[in-house]
Every structure is written in structure tokens, then in C-alpha cells.
Design a protein around this nucleic acid. Structure first.
Lengths: 248, 248
DNA sequence: ACCTGAACACCGTTCAAGT
DNA sequence: ACCTGAACACCGTTCAAGT
């Protein structure tokens, strides 16, 4: 029972250890189950001990996001802004996918930490050094939204809970009934996976869907850039609700 | 003290009254403060009384989303699919903006209610009757993501908490320091509002940013449709990570 | 300087009862 | 059929102590 090499009786807490443990715990049990008390227990410590190292739960979450941001690969020096942005986003996506809770955590942050601002700044820099105008870069960042972190703006959460086990026959019958009431939804849901013989949904290739939308946007930026588009022109030239149509 | 016309002592609960009250309460105090207990109190009833009308809090949230979906204007019969989709989305956006909590609530739903499926089905129908392929429509819906509800995929929440009151001088100094460390972020943040003389951020025209990204995507769909694009072609023709580049 | 213990004001939800 | 009361197993966070 020496305390040199094993998990060891509390090597004393510090901020880094707290954040690290929080990330690992969230990976394991999910962000909705991560509580200060549960985390304290994991660290073999009383809940209030954590408050010496993070001001409160919000700051804990800020710190956890910082840890993730630190895991994103630095940008490769790409030839052009477009592939530079593209590869940086795909690299962020790769990192974020290792931490299923990260998306939700990022979305609920109300302020950017210095570390997050560093990330954003280098990101914006890729556009600017690529020659895009401040104006276009501004709107491009907005249009990308959460995609700069590599997450898709899904309509609904992943089902997470595995669908209850049903027989193939019941499954087919359910699908038939659904197709009666929601013909269009069922049609597009089955259209893509159809080719591979799977039945419904979740043959969905998330990576493909992500890149599909990403490239649509990047191509759009490129086209606007090439024609010297400005938002001022877009706004004054046209009616309000048709404003962005110059994108055409 | 007659109980005919006034707020009245409990006109007896039912599901509709519970959901209605929940929506109103969430509008007022925010989704994070909405609890079963608080809602019960608002209805002048003991917490457990609610459980006769909704199975649990998740089902309450499902029902609240249904209420919102019911508020979205029915689609105008537009000439072409593109303006049909566009106006439907802007109409959804208009409705959702009346309920600041709705976005978060929708994002956390794990299954679609029949009412939500109805909405999606009619939405998909606009693409299909417009002549788009099942394949393209499928990917288009994914690319739009939460935008079919009219919300932007913002990088971070709205600051919500109003920035602490600081003098213009302090504000300028803070900006100067920030520009030192985050030159690119400050540059694009100030670029757009610059024209109108405001100092930083939040001169941002959310509606413009939303339509900018929306139209970029819609224009992209149109272009792909015109050239008979298929995802099968996109996938087999090219390397994996470059898959969606046919969007060009 | 760091950790503890007890307490406060909350949660969602159960179970067994009341009318 | 609908509502109540008491209880259980949780939360985040405070305050005053301990070492």
C-alpha cells in the first residue's frame, strides 16, 4: 500500500486536474449527468472542495470547453483560404466528435474565454489573409455558425436511446403506416439508404451531410468574393426581405 | 367573490391548459427556470397534479414545442419551390422569435411528435412538388438543419445579460487592448457596424445574417438541381473528404 | 492555502391516500 | 377521475469551521 505509483490518495487538487476529470467524466456519463457533487465524488473529495478551483459550475463548463479547444489540431498552412478553412473545420469536427457533450456545452456558453477567442482569431485570420474583405468575412463567420466547431445544425438530437427492439415485420408495418401519414418524410428518409438495402434513417452518412452543407457555403463565399460583393450593396440595392438574394 | 369571470379558482386542469401555461411561463422566466413545481404553483395546484396531464417533464416540453409549431403560419402557395421554402422558413422564424426558449427546447427533443412530423412532411413536400429529387431534398433538409425552424446556428448564445455599464472611455480602452490580442476578431466585429458609427458587436443585423446564409444554401440547391446532381455521383466520383466538392 | 460539514433552497418523481 | 401530502434521492451553493 505505498502511495507512489497507484491511483494514489489525493495528489491534491488543482484547476487542471479538476477540468481534466470533468472532461473524462462527461465523456463517460454525459453532460446532463455531470454534477458538481458527482465530480467531487469521482475525485474523492467533498463537493465544496471544487469551489476553490472553479468559481461555480458555469466556470467549470467554460474550462472544459477550453480543454477541448486545446485539443484541436493547429491549422495546416494551406495554399488557399478555402481549403484552409475547410481543413480547420474538419479538424475541429474530428476533435469535437470525441466528446459528444462538447456541442451542448459550447452552445450554452455566454462569453468567450481568451482561449476560445484565440481560436476564433486564428480562424478569422485564414479568411483575411486569403484576401476576403472584412465585410464578407464577418457574414461568412455568421453563416458558418457552429460549423466553425465542426458540428452540424441538426434538426433533432441523435436518438441516443437505441430504438426498442422490434421485429423486421413490425418495422416494415410501422414504416407502411408512417408512409401513409408522412409520405414525404418517409420518401426522403428511405431514398438515400435505399441504395444500400437498409431500411430507414441512420444509414445517414453524417460526414457526407456535414461536408455537403459546408461546401455549399464555402462555394458561395468564393463566388461572392470573386464578384466583389458587399453587404452594403446587398442591403441598399434591394427590398429588405430579399436583401441577401444578391448571393445569387 | 363570484367565480364566473375573474381569474377564478381552478377551472380544472387539462392538458391544453397545462401546456398553455407552460408556454406563457417559459416566455416570462425562461426555459432554464421552468420547473414542474414552479408551473404547478403558477396554476395554483400541487406539483403532482400536473402528472395526470403530462407523463413527465420531457413530455411537457414535447407538448410545448407542439404548441409553438401550431402557431407557425400555414405555407403560402408560392409559385416556385425556392420562394416557397424561403417564406415558410421566414414565417417559422417569425413565430419562434416570439418564444426565446423554443430553440433550446426543440434542440433537446429526442423524438418528433406527430404534429412536428406533419410540419416536416409539408415542408419536404414543397421541395418535392417543386421537382427536386428525393436525393437532393434529403441532403437539402440536412443542410438547412435547424434553419427549417428559422433559427440561426449561432456560435454562442446571445449575451442575454446586458454588458456591465462602462464608460465610453473604458469601452474604447478595452477595445484597444482586445485588438492587440485578437486583431482579426475585432476587425470583423467592428467592420460592419462601423458604417453606422456604433462601437462593437450587436449592431449586428441578425435578420440579415440569417437570410445571407439561407440564400447561400437555397442558391446552392438550385444550382445542383439545375445540373441534375446526385449524391451517388458525388460520392463515387471523388475521394471521401472531397466528396461534396461537386457542389462547385 | 486548501479542504470539510452542516445547512438552505431548490429539483423531478414515487407512492399511498383522499374526494 | 382528478388532486393532495409526505417522502426520496437528488441538485448548486452559502457559511463557518477545521488543519
Amino acid at each position: 500500500m505505498t502511495d507512489t505509483l497507484q491511483a494514489g490518495p489525493r495528489p491534491r487538487l488543482n484547476r487542471a486536474r479538476v477540468l481534466e476529470a470533468a472532461v473524462a467524466l462527461a465523456d463517460e456519463i454525459g453532460i446532463e449527468s455531470l454534477s458538481m457533487r458527482r465530480l467531487a465524488q469521482e475525485l474523492g473529495v467533498v463537493p465544496m472542495a471544487l469551489y476553490k478551483h472553479v468559481a461555480n459550475k458555469e466556470e467549470l463548463l467554460d474550462g472544459m470547453v477550453d480543454v477541448i479547444v486545446g485539443e484541436i489540431d493547429p491549422p495546416a498552412a494551406d495554399a488557399d483560404w478555402k481549403s484552409g478553412v475547410r481543413s480547420r473545420i474538419l479538424s475541429a469536427r474530428h476533435t469535437l466528435q470525441r466528446h459528444a457533450w462538447a456541442r451542448r456545452a459550447i452552445e450554452t456558453r455566454t462569453a468567450m474565454t481568451p482561449r476560445v477567442l484565440d481560436y476564433m482569431d486564428s480562424f478569422v485570420g485564414v479568411f483575411l489573409t486569403g484576401g476576403l474583405s472584412l465585410d464578407l468575412t464577418h457574414h461568412a463567420m455568421h453563416a458558418l455558425g457552429g460549423r466553425v466547431w465542426g458540428f452540424t445544425q441538426e434538426l433533432f438530437e441523435d436518438p441516443a436511446a437505441p430504438a426498442p427492439a422490434v421485429s423486421d415485420a413490425d418495422r416494415a408495418e410501422m414504416l407502411r403506416q408512417a408512409a401513409q401519414r408522412y409520405p414525404n418524410v418517409v420518401a426522403i428518409a428511405t431514398s438515400v439508404t435505399h441504395d444500400e438495402g437498409s431500411v430507414v434513417g441512420h444509414g445517414c452518412d453524417d460526414q457526407f451531410e456535414f461536408e455537403f452543407a459546408l461546401d455549399l457555403l464555402l462555394d458561395g463565399f468564393e463566388r461572392l468574393h470573386a464578384r466583389g460583393w458587399t453587404s452594403r450593396g446587398a442591403k441598399t440595392q434591394q427590398s429588405n426581405t430579399e436583401a441577401a438574394k444578391t448571393a445569387r
